[in-house]
Design a protein around this nucleic acid. Sequence first.
RNA 1: CGGGGUGUAGCGCAGACUGGUAGCGCGUUUGGUUCGGGACCAAAAGGUCGCGGGUUCAAAUCCCGCCGCCCCGACCA
Length: 569
Amino acid sequence: MRLTQTLIPTLREAPQDAEIPSHKLMMRAGLIMKLGGGLYTFLPAGLKALRKVEKIVREEMDRAGALEVLMPALQPREIWEQSGRYTVLKDAMFKIKDRQQRDMVLGPTHEEVITDLVSRQINSYRQLPKTFYQIQTKFRDEIRPRFGLMRAKEFSMKDAYSFDVSWEAADVSYQAMYDAYVRIFKRCGLRTKVVEADTGAMGGNFSHEFMVLADSGEDGIVECESCSYAANLERAERMTPKTETTTTDKAPEIVATPGKRTIDEVSAFLKLAPHDLIKTLIYVADGKPVAVLVPGDRDVNEHKLARALGGIPVQLADDATIVQVTGAPVGFAGPVGLKIPIYADSGLKTPRVSATGANAADAHLVNVLSGRDFQVAEYFDLVIAREGDSCPRCGTRMREKRGIEVGHVFKLGTKYSKAFDAGFLDAAGNRQIIVMGCYGIGVTRTLQAVIEQSYDENGIIWPISIAPYQVSVVVPNTGHAESVKVAEEIIQKLEAQGIDVLFDDRDERPGVKFKDADLMGLPIRAVISERSLAEGKVEVKRRTEKEKNMIPVSDAVTFIENIIRGELS
RNA sequence: CGGGGUGUAGCGCAGACUGGUAGCGCGUUUGGUUCGGGACCAAAAGGUCGCGGGUUCAAAUCCCGCCGCCCCGACCA
């Protein structure tokens, strides 16, 4: 492809609204253009790269035995009512009406559609297992679209769904997808970290996320410094810390703490470490208020809390409820004298002399002892894990990292198959329910994540597998006919081998072409100039190499082919 | 939705406080000189100053309302 015939509008400066390196570089390298918040047009070069990611995904899905389908993005409201997710996801969905005023949604995901399909088409154990997948545009009314393609309102996703006769069989399908994901990301040149994750609105009981480690990542994860344990902060557990018991003969004593509501304010005022305070939070679980206690220096993990209380939805109580339950305004809640169930983090199991809210305005209690002054209904691991916590598996210290979630595999179970009555007759003629799994890859996000993980001060560094063009050809002086002729011959031969070549045929100064080649990040650069041709050679250099290789003209094509084959094999 | 910021040419910005013919750099067009790491000279095209209202002889500038976009928090591939 000649640069003058395509459209790759490179920018010297990044648009002001681009924040992270990959977003800036996608804009600067002329891959995408913004239409509005979370909405992007793929320009020719960006699309070429995207198609290559899709191709890798397809090949690996097919290899894993998944069947490609294509489901409607536009879906009737009814199927969402049927799964019970219309309420759960309705704020995240784009909702529209057709001309008959029927409610429709733009699909944010496709469990409902695929399960409906399977419930109609699959009737026998002989038809199972089956895994279906599609690569399709998803729509989500994100609260805050961000970072270009990283979190967009419209994005391309590969979603797959497995259907099995049993939980054991589902494990096999799950593993097949897991393995395919490992291969996909590896082929895209990504280094990923697999972490245990929360299942969220998707439901199900088990999941793994594929994370690209990056400072700009929106997810926090912890990983053990010794064993293989790694988890999303939403799920991450920690071993109960060993704390020393402390005790006192003194009764709880009320201390006036006017206007001191936060842990920081109270600990500073009472001259106690935050750890010596107990943070009391009032939650509403399934309509009923409960008190949740955590050490003063920790935060509640609501996902863990919800799971601990039996998977019911929990939310922080509003101010009115807090006043009603504690008899005090927000900021002075404490466990002593509360008439509601009290759940506490396991870090508080060891009795310690603590300070708590006094359930009275502008007052706190000191010399509070659990067991003596209040009773905890049950202890759970309830706090958000953090750097320095002990690994739940082996007790070693854990460290915190940031990650970009590019893939997520779920063991769903029967949530959707039950809702859509997706069952089958087993060999004995008994009707059984299908066990499902679901598996997503953010295709557009993966593309950007590759850049986030691979760039330098000059621009993108594409892996050969998904570079829009594997080779860029630069002729410093396009006025030199011989250079152009040799360049065109080499390009023609490379393209005949199925290699994508971008020929910078612009009438620009050499410096401009070199800068743009680096910015676009094409993996191999061939320079054909009067100077090198005088020795019968052309210059070939990888994007990451400093040294130029001077290759005889007749060997150039083979030399380049070998680099590409070497990396793709 | 809460908090903060911002909107002036395709991109990056100045002008606003103190109202008076809308500017700079990059990019684009034309001509010329240049030609291995974002050249130089000359000429030119390109703007409803986010939108609506108000104040004023006069508004990019002051006032009111709305909208877009970006950042920090709750959602997710």
